[in-house]
């Protein structure tokens, strides 16, 4: 359950953004969460429902989560493939010389606020 810790960090970032832009109320927060980020969107939303009540700035803010697909690039054959289906070994050529291109994100993309 590291989702609660993540919510605490999101809130801290939002508080500093609000301060910089003189915002008093956030209506929604949109996150980008990678498929292999080890974050469970449902847990994240649950933690958000619990935690937002404690902070007036985000008390009524909805959380939107956009799941980013995980894609791995193979150094050997220079092709890409879906990470979740094949893991670290390239399904095209069998190489282990692969690295994740996208899919481990945990970003705050945008907020609606006043």
């Amino acid at each position: 359950m590291h989702e609660l810790g993540i919510i605490v960090h999101i809130t801290k970032t939002l508080q500093s953004v609000a301060e910089e832009n003189h915002l008093t109320e956030i209506a929604s927060v949109t996150l980008e969460v990678g498929e292999v980020s080890a974050i469970v969107p449902d847990y994240l939303t649950d933690c958000w429902q619990y935690y937002r009540k404690k902070i007036p700035l985000i008390e009524h803010a909805e959380m939107n989560i956009e799941v980013m697909p995980a894609i791995t690039f193979c150094q050997s054959c220079e092709k890409t493939y879906p990470t979740v289906d094949y893991g670290r070994q390239c399904p095209h050529c069998g190489s282990w010389e692969t690295w994740l291109v996208t899919g481990d994100e945990c970003n705050i993309r945008e907020i609606e606020a006043q």
């Binding site: 970032t13 915002l23 209506a27 705050i108 993309r109 945008e110 907020i111 609606e112």
Partner: peptide, 11 residues
């Protein structure tokens, strides 16, 4: 409400 682009990693 206005949309603010944040583009920040949570960590």
């Amino acid at each position: 409400y206005k949309v603010y682009e944040i583009k920040k990693r949570v960590f």
